[in-house]
């Protein structure tokens, strides 16, 4: 453990969805440049933790500090901008716009940032190549395989050069070979760019791509409280 200030830190987060308590005092730190895997059984609150850390939802209690800013207190407009510029997200599915081609999907965040379309396409193309999906630019998500769609999603998450990428079960819908290709592409890329990654997964083989693992244990298994344990 180093003494450096973490890039993103959550302290004692609690969050309830209706009557289900998803988080009960979760504490986790993300250091700059590392890949952290958060594992746990389904329903252990992994996704909720990611949503809190990425500023997608506000925790009921506790704090989320990113780069000196309290995300849990930031207004939605600034959060949205932060997610657009400094964060990237990859979900199991759903983040690609079904009507847009692969290249337009990847170029979209750049266009939102005011980059001209031709330039955005050029940069999107480079990212598609990095993730090994060059030649699929004109396909729409419904016409791609799951692995291709996930690689396009990752290209989209990384195209703006974010500081942190949040990946929620990015290989959840893929077979092991496709999952290996997707993860290898991701790890290679973020090592090159120095991007910090929070990786949510229930798959140990996917978690092994990370530098470190934090395990979220379900409140049902242990009667006291959900406890986040950092495996060394």
């Amino acid at each position: 453990m180093s003494n450096e200030v973490p890039l993103l830190a959550a302290r004692a987060l609690t969050k309830a969805h209706g009557r289900t308590q998803a988080l009960r005092g979760a504490t986790v730190e993300l250091r700059a440049g590392e890949i952290l895997a958060v594992t746990g059984t389904s329903g252990s609150g992994k996704s909720t933790l990611l949503h809190c850390l990425a500023g997608i939802v506000r925790p009921d209690e506790g704090s989320v500090v990113y780069d000196g800013r309290r995300l849990d207190q930031l207004p939605e407009k600034q959060l949205s901008e932060l997610r657009r510029t400094e964060f990237g997200v990859v979900f199991q599915f759903g983040q690609l716009i079904p009507e847009l081609t692969a290249i337009d999907n990847v170029a979209l965040p750049l266009m939102l940032a005011g980059v001209r379309r031709t330039e955005a396409h050029k940069r999107a193309d480079e990212w598609l190549e990095r993730f090994g999906v060059r030649g699929q630019e004109e396909l729409r998500p419904g016409e791609m395989s799951g692995g291709q769609a996930q690689r396009v999603s990752m290209a989209r998450a990384l195209v703006t050069g974010p500081k942190v990428v949040f990946a929620d079960e990015p290989t959840g819908a893929l077979d092991s070979l496709a999952s290996e290709q997707v993860m290898t592409a991701l790890v290679h890329t973020v090592r090159e760019t120095g991007t910090t990654v929070l990786l949510i997964t229930h798959d140990h083989q996917v978690a092994a791509y990370a530098d470190r693992e934090a395990r979220l244990l379900d409140g049902v298994v242990r009667q006291d409280s959900v406890d986040l344990e950092v495996a060394q």
Binding site: H204, A208, Y209, E229
Partner: peptide, 21 residues
């Protein structure tokens, strides 16, 4: 718990070997 951590550590090593360029 300790065994689990050791297993994960070994898996990380193997994965690192596997993904090296």
């Amino acid at each position: 718990r300790a065994q689990r951590a050791a297993h994960m550590e070994r898996m990380r090593q193997l994965t690192a070997v596997k993904t090296a360029t």
